[in-house]
Design a protein around this nucleic acid. Structure first.
Length: 111
DNA sequence: CTACTGACTGATC
DNA sequence: TGATCAGCCAGTA
């Protein structure tokens, strides 16, 4: 039996990886997907985080896109994106003039 | 089961 | 360097 859609297992893996991102470090959606064995499941990773409730112990703010920028989710109510940047800055992550972070410096590579 | 969407990425223009 | 198109995975209609 093939198990193409991992379902909740996939989400759990995403949460587990994100939870292991050290403070002051960040990861990209694609990197997480590849780490889990999915080469192009970056969108699914973002979906998993989007389902994450507030108050969760998962540091969702440390997950950004490959450009090093925070992905906009709602043009109408993007308060979360602002909060995400503030949280990262509070952790020591510096944003440049283009609102991007230096992935070469802050990207965390899981073992 | 098919179609569309979404916190993405990589290739092309 | 910046915008556009297509591909991929999971979820919902």
């Amino acid at each position: 039996m093939k198990e193409y859609h991992q379902g909740e297992n996939f989400y759990q893996k995403v949460y587990t990886v994100v939870s292991q991102i050290p403070l002051g470090k960040v990861m990209t959606y694609g990197q997480i997907a590849r780490f889990l064995g999915y080469l192009h499941a970056a969108r699914a990773v973002g979906y998993a985080l989007h389902l994450l409730p507030h108050g969760s112990s998962v540091p969702w703010q440390r997950v950004i896109n490959y450009q090093g920028k925070i992905s906009p989710r709602s043009i109408d109510f993007d308060h979360a994106t602002v909060v995400q940047r503030l949280l990262l800055e509070a952790e020591g992550v510096m944003f440049d003039d283009d609102d991007r972070v230096d992935l070469e410096k802050y990207l965390w590579n899981p073992e």
